[in-house]
Design a binder for these strands. Structure first.
Lengths: 131, 131
DNA sequence: ATGCCTGCAAAGCCTTTGCATCTGC
DNA sequence: GCAGATGCAAAGGCTTTGCAGGCAT
């Protein structure tokens, strides 16, 4: 069993978390960097990445690995789906409790939804045997 | 209306397509580059990328933008889903015609499936108004 | 005091692109 | 012949990492 390191609440981590929870825009690491720099002008992009990774590890935030685009982060961890703009990459929320919508007409959070991407996640035989 | 450029069947494009159709492994561009180089030792990685993009544009192959990992390519364009190994990133096929499986037990193509990633795709208000 | 964390900068990985040359049609 | 394609190499975008010093506990 691996002991997990003790985490410290630094001002950097606190501000990153606050700013992420303050927005609904699912920002990228560098967008968050720009925002955080207004309060901590000397914060570095590396620190932003490191803290986002740690916060995602502990489940305090979500790391969104959207298909084929830059990673984004989400301060809300409640059960919901995401919609990605196929043109600009902007991401919005889709409530997990809604009934299956008519995708041609459904609009959520300012998006016109017209597609669904689905992929299964699992463990391949090789990796499974090695665990 | 934009005229699309005339495409030429070069030996590079033909061999990339042949090798991609020959395998079920959903290779990445650099994996395909290694294979293609056995037949065309002077082919460049840039050429592999350019041809894969063109073949995907014409629908001859699929460009898989799997979540949070390198792009992969698929020589079969029939209707199917993919399963991604959360450990090594390897990708397998899941037939689109099967009934909804018990995901805890279902195995397909050497994968133990235990999750499903879903994301909606659409157009955001800003991009929609600009079209 | 300890060891986790930071800023900075460099490196890493994947992908795209500029350019001179070559080649399919 | 000419537009499109190639090889090579450099640059680009995003992310990670090594290191010396800094700070929460």
């Amino acid at each position: 069993m691996t002991a997990s390191p003790k985490r410290r609440m630094t001002s950097q981590r606190r501000i990153i978390l606050e700013e992420l929870r303050k927005t609904k825009s699912h920002p990228t690491a560098d967008e968050l960097y720009v925002v955080a720099r207004k309060r901590l002008p000397r914060i570095s992009l590396g620190t932003v990445y490191r803290n986002l990774d740690q916060l995602a590890e502990t489940g305090e935030i979500l790391k969104l690995e959207m298909c084929g685009s830059q990673k984004r982060f989400d301060g809300s961890t409640h059960d919901h789906f995401h919609v990605r703009c196929r043109i600009c990459g902007r991401v919005g929320d889709v409530d997990a409790t809604l009934s299956l919508p008519d995708l041609d007409r459904f609009k959520a959070d300012q998006f016109e939804i017209n597609g669904l991407y689905m992929e299964f996640v699992g463990t391949c035989a090789g990796c499974e045997s090695r665990e």
